[in-house]
Design a protein around this nucleic acid. Structure first.
Lengths: 342, 342
DNA sequence: TTCTTCCATGCAAACCTTTGCATAAATATT
DNA sequence: AATATTTATGCAAAGGTTTGCATGGAAGAA
């Protein structure tokens, strides 16, 4: 039961006017007589007319599509950021095409190729942990397509950028641990190629030194990924040593949670023997026993703001554009996996 | 530094041939001489030619875009389904536009309007818990756009459908509880408007009766949503009664996990006093203490298969089409929140 | 040589919308 | 009454691609 979509000239023929008149009438042009407008609008409704976006796009070289590339979509973090983005975009008439790079540079490059072919009007991207080159991004910018980089930075690439202040979050967390009496604080850091992980590590180090504690290289570890498995594996190593830490600051909640069963299994208590702090405030983190102390990030806002900034750039792209740099503030959420302040 | 994208006629002019020749050459038409082809291909590469999808789409009335509507995107379930879908679509040249209805019928209808305007070539949808009418879906089908309904059914709507066998999963879970000695099994069911929830409840009831246990209406509750909060709230009610159950079968993992702190807080042990089973096998479920027994669903495959079926319908749409109905098999994952078999 | 056949290419229409310019009719001005 | 102005509409081009049909030339056949 396929039937053609109604077009402008369908309406035109039905009313014995020209397509241009119909077009103008539907755009409420002052050139058109009131009665003509009314009959056109009525007929458009009757025929269930929907303007053909492809034809319009062809004419003004716009697709009203925004491309989004994230490392993965199934995790809480990026899913929530996309959520914010969606909510922002919803009423703008723009649509989102989402791709996930699976932390692979090749996939990322391929996705950008696809999005370029689809002629997206703008791109919002959080690069993979493998991404060290900006050539693919530069290509985008050269063709005049606005890009917003969010959460993870692409150093040396010039564009709008929206991040969370990871340094600050990490600093607060570790500072809190020290204030509750911890001294041998281990850090389970993430892939060092990611700016987020480097910032968190810097926050960790600075919190230590500013409190007069010399960082112990033995206690600074790196997990290869962001899953509980990674935490589980690395904590076994750590706890097999002679001197065990009295606190752990993990790169994210998932890694922290992976360590919990192992710690408890060894007969150690959380937080009495080992305090534990994560990062992200994932929905389940408060339901663990003990509930997980963590650093909350304004992820939804991260997505929303990225969308707003991109849209602004798309709509009022002036020749001289000042790239924006936004740093959102995280917040320490104290729960039961860390000791209370004295 | 905006510069126009190269077009067919740019290549044509550069080589002193016509645009049609260029088009045919790039499509490797047998009508074109080998040398001509070679020079065209070389020039296309030199000018970084990318065919304009909008122009092509305008001509053959295709957008190569698939619309996806899910109730929410931040949860593990739908995010993973979308993941499977993405992976399938990736190499087909099709793109995905994803919208979330937030369990609101109005938002769902509005999204469908947007997708219809965007002229998507097909739609994959999991309806909201509010959706009781199919008018918006029928409109889609009438304009000849293939639709695949997945996970949650829209009864009386004729289309391809891909589901998980919720009945079977629930039956297995409850049957297992009975076999491990539980008799007073409570069910924390989800919104009864959803087919998935109704199927799980039926599985629960049938498992009871087939094992000679008369269902106790007192033990059959309904949560308003799918979050841990909902579980937390309802379990307080349940445990305040005189006769407490010896097992709980929750509509999903999130609800089950919400009950855990409350149960333990009351001094009850899991599974010795109360066995607990969820549904979904969310990534964190195995990291709780005790780890959660649950019903795993082939979610990734659900998305993948939905994509495959839709694509098949789009590409070889015959006049007489037999709608497909697929039922994927879930699997009980026994962990520590339920007693072992004797 | 002349006619046929085939090969390689070009022309133009179609897809649908928007918009500058032209035109026709109606009204206002002198 | 004749000209100037306004008002409402139509024409045609442009945007980039595909494709049926026409055309030009060259090679083959008679």
């Amino acid at each position: 039961m396929k039937r053609r979509h109604a077009t402008l000239s369908d309406i035109a023929k039905a009313l014995n006017v020209s397509a241009s008149t119909v077009s103008r009438a539907l755009h409420d042009s002052p050139l058109i007589r009131k009665e003509t407008k009314d009959s056109v609008i009525a007929m458009a409704k009757a025929l269930n007319y929907q303007p053909n976006q492809q034809a319009i796009g062809l004419l003004n070289k716009k697709t009203k599509i925004i491309g989004v590339i994230v490392p993965e979509i199934t995790g809480y973090f990026f899913a929530t950021a996309i959520n914010g983005l969606q909510d922002f975009v919803e009423n703008t008439g723009y649509k989102l095409i989402i791709g996930q790079s699976n932390e692979s540079f090749d996939q990322e490059a391929k996705l950008m190729e696809t999005l370029s072919l689809a002629r997206v009007d703008g791109l919002i991207i959080s690069p993979t942990s493998e991404t060290t080159s900006n050539i693919h991004l530069e290509k985008f910018r050269e063709s005049g397509i606005p890009v917003v980089v969010f959460d993870r930075d692409c150093p040396n690439f010039l564009s709008d950028k929206v991040f969370v202040d990871d340094y600050e979050g990490a600093f607060q967390a570790v500072d809190y641990l020290i204030k509750t009496g911890c001294r041998k604080i281990a850090h389970l850091g993430g892939p060092a190629n990611l700016t987020t992980c480097r910032c968190r590590k810097r926050g960790y180090l600075d919190a230590l030194t500013q409190n007069g504690i010399t960082p112990d290289p033995q206690l600074i570890l790196e997990v290869p990924g962001f899953t509980p498995d990674c935490g589980e594996e690395i904590i076994r190593d750590l706890l097999d040593r002679e001197a065990i830490p009295d606190a752990i600051f993990a790169v994210n909640d998932a890694v922290a949670i992976g360590t919990m069963p192992v710690i408890l299994e060894k007969g150690l208590r959380i937080p009495q023997d080992i305090s534990l702090i994560g990062f992200d405030d994932e929905p389940y983190s408060q339901y663990f026993m003990p509930s997980l102390t963590t650093v909350w990030q304004p992820v939804y806002e991260l997505g929303l703001l990225s969308g707003r900034i991109l849209m602004n750039h798309i709509l009022h792209s002036p020749e001289e554009y000042d790239y924006r740099y936004e740093l959102l503030k995280p917040e320490l959420i104290v729960r039961q996996s860390s000791k209370p302040l004295v």
